[in-house]
């Protein structure tokens, strides 16, 4: 009988060791975090929408300038691609933040630990997406610099 209860006790102790109760002061802090995350999500959605409007306006202007350049439509397509990459990233970050805030609020309201697990998952996804956006931005910046050097070399005979 004792042999049977011993491993069971150990198991319960192990569970208690792995799951830590959330500090009492953290409830209010998490509530505020959820509110700010929701604000940040909304501003990200607004930013994505404004970038979309800006894309159409800028492309309309650039279209007029590039029509005399050989292969100008290719550069417009490139610009659309760059805009769409950043718009997608902004919207995706907003989406992750929205879910993060929702999970956090739900976890606090119903005191549901599973929801808190998911909140930590979406917090990770948010930082991961932000990181990939930075990496993509860096790659695009290098590509734009190379394109600029190429265009300057190509256009230099016509500059004077």
């Amino acid at each position: 009988m004792f042999e049977n209860t011993e491993p069971l006790d150990q198991e319960i102790q192990h569970d208690r060791e792995t799951s830590i109760p959330l500090p009492a002061g953290a409830y209010g802090v998490l509530q505020q975090t959820a509110t700010w995350a929701k604000i940040l999500a909304i501003t990200n959605f607004c930013s994505a929408g404004l970038q979309l409007i800006g894309m159409f306006v800028v492309l309309d202007r650039v279209r007029m300038m590039l029509r005399f350049l050989n292969g100008g439509s290719n550069y417009i397509l490139l610009m659309i691609l760059v805009y769409l990459i950043f718009i997608s990233f902004t919207a995706l970050i907003g989406w992750h933040l929205w879910i993060y805030a929702a999970r956090l609020k739900s976890a606090l309201l119903y005191e549901d630990t599973d929801e808190l697990d998911l909140a930590y998952y979406y917090q990770f996804r948010y930082f991961k997406t932000l990181g990939w956006m930075v990496i993509s931005g860096f790659i695009l910046m290098v590509a734009a610099m190379l394109l600029f050097v190429y265009l300057r070399t190509m256009l230099s005979p016509y500059s004077y």
Partner: peptide, 12 residues
């Protein structure tokens, strides 16, 4: 029951 930080949460 109160909120707990589980091993699943800490895995992230």
């Amino acid at each position: 029951p109160g909120l707990y930080i589980t091993r699943d949460a800490r895995s992230f």
